[in-house]
Design a protein around this nucleic acid. Structure first.
Lengths: 154, 154
DNA sequence: ACCACGGTTGACGTTTACGTCAGAGGAACT
DNA sequence: AGTTCCTCTGACGTAAACGTCAACCGTGGT
């Protein structure tokens, strides 16, 4: 019966790398409905769980509206058999859609891996004979490295 | 040396269920550059292949800009070693991103399947005691079936 | 009492990926 | 020649998902 842990908007944002604006937006869309302490929003553990589902839904490309429907599937106090039946229908539609998408992704990954292989081989066999000039190569590489701010191991 | 097959804009649109507007838009963005017969666009077999890649990229949630970069990876006449190296980098980034996405999708599918199971059981154990009324149930079901045009096995 | 700080509510701006006319041009049938 | 198509080029509109900015509020510290 310990008071369940709660979160401020900023805590959740830091944890999941999103902005307060986004959370309020999800709230506008009915995907979240945190409690209030005066004006301030207080997110419960359940709210946090919902947020995680929302973000995963986004990562797999679902529009917020669809995510909302799916979230409702999990919290069905329900309104009857017909409701449940159509929910099941939507659920299955989403499953088959995601399975198609999985296939697309597998194909894309396969092709990209082939592409990567070819690029590697090209790099390997690409002797100085294909280069503009050793000096140019050197300079181009330098420019590249200078231009890239992040991702550097330095 | 038979003249390679070509396609009008409408033919491609019918084949891939998209609109002429979309194809012209992709052209604006540099993802396609079909030949012309006067004003009219003439799509080659290669253009068609690119379009398929574009559409698959879209299905996995890539923005058109990214798709453009990936397409360029396949057609590298190239500008040197540095170019090829950074291309390889981008390629690998995309691969790992897609692999993460694959995991998300697998998780989402798993959860949805659990949800579907629960819904099925609820439907099974949901005796008339939870129903508004047997008559209402019957009527609601009828309405449902009438409202759904496709997917019906009838 | 004053002020910084984090949070809140509008309201308008922005990007992406097209949809939707409006107006015109060439091919083809009648 | 007239009409019917299909297509083309702008140009403007739109939905989704926030970003950004202004102005306000309550609370803790000094």
């Amino acid at each position: 019966m310990s008071a369940e842990r709660t979160y401020t908007i900023r805590q959740l944002c830091q944890e999941f790398a999103c902005t307060p604006r986004a959370l309020r937006f999800y709230e506008d869309k009915g995907l979240l409905s945190p409690a209030r302490a005066g004006l301030n929003r207080i997110y419960s553990y359940k709210d946090r769980a919902r947020l995680m589902l929302i973000l995963r839904g986004k990562r797999v490309g679902l529009p917020l509206a669809e995510i909302g429907e799916l979230l409702d599937l999990y919290e069905l106090d329900d309104g009857g058999v017909a409701q449940t039946a159509t929910s099941l229908g939507k659920c299955r539609e989403r499953i088959t859609a995601l399975e198609r998408q999985r296939i697309d992704i597998d194909n894309a990954i396969a092709e990209l891996k082939l592409g990567a292989l070819e690029l590697e081989q090209r790099l390997a066999t690409m002797g100085p004979e294909h280069l503009p000039k050793a000096a140019d190569y050197d300079q181009a590489l330098r420019l590249r490295l200078d231009g890239v701010e992040h991702e550097g191991s330095h």
